[in-house]
Computed example of a mutant assay.
Amino acid sequence: MGLVIIALIIINIFTVYKFIFKFIFTDFDDFNESLRYSFTPDIISLFRKEYWKDQFGEFKLGFFILICVIVTIVEYGIVNGIIQQIMKLI
């Protein structure tokens, strides 16, 4: 039964992640920029005069990851509850 839950979540999660991605990032270049900023030390961004862009890029990437984790946990709970109810009926 665990494999069924995981398979259903994996099938659905890609569409949900894509929606969240489009909501947070304007395009794939925006995502790459946020990723670059999260690997660049803050002191280097400060010297490049990109400190606030760095902070905002890191925030967007962290927010994207947090929302994806929360959505996955919620979806697991929903799918697990639905399958439990179906198993009770059988």
Rank of each mutant, 00 (worst) to 15 (best):
T72K: 14
F59V: 08
R36L: 04
K18L: 08
I44T: 06
V69P: 00
T15N: 08
T26G: 01
V74A: 13
I70C: 10
V71N: 09
I86D: 04
D27N: 10
S38R: 07
T26C: 00
D27G: 01
F14R: 12
V79S: 09
Q84W: 03
V4I: 15
E75F: 11
S34P: 03
I24K: 03
D54S: 13
M87E: 15
E58D: 13
D30A: 04
D42N: 13
L35G: 02
I83K: 05
I90D: 08
I70D: 05
K60R: 15
Q85L: 10
S34D: 09
V71C: 15
G2K: 12
D30T: 00
V16K: 02
Q55G: 03
F28E: 04
E58A: 06
I67M: 09
I83Y: 14
I24H: 04
F28P: 00
D27V: 00
V74Q: 11
S45N: 13
P41R: 02
D29N: 05
L3I: 08
Y17A: 03
F21H: 07
I10V: 14
N80I: 00
L8D: 12
I82D: 08
F28D: 01
I86S: 07
I11S: 10
V69E: 14
E75Y: 14
K18I: 00
T72W: 09
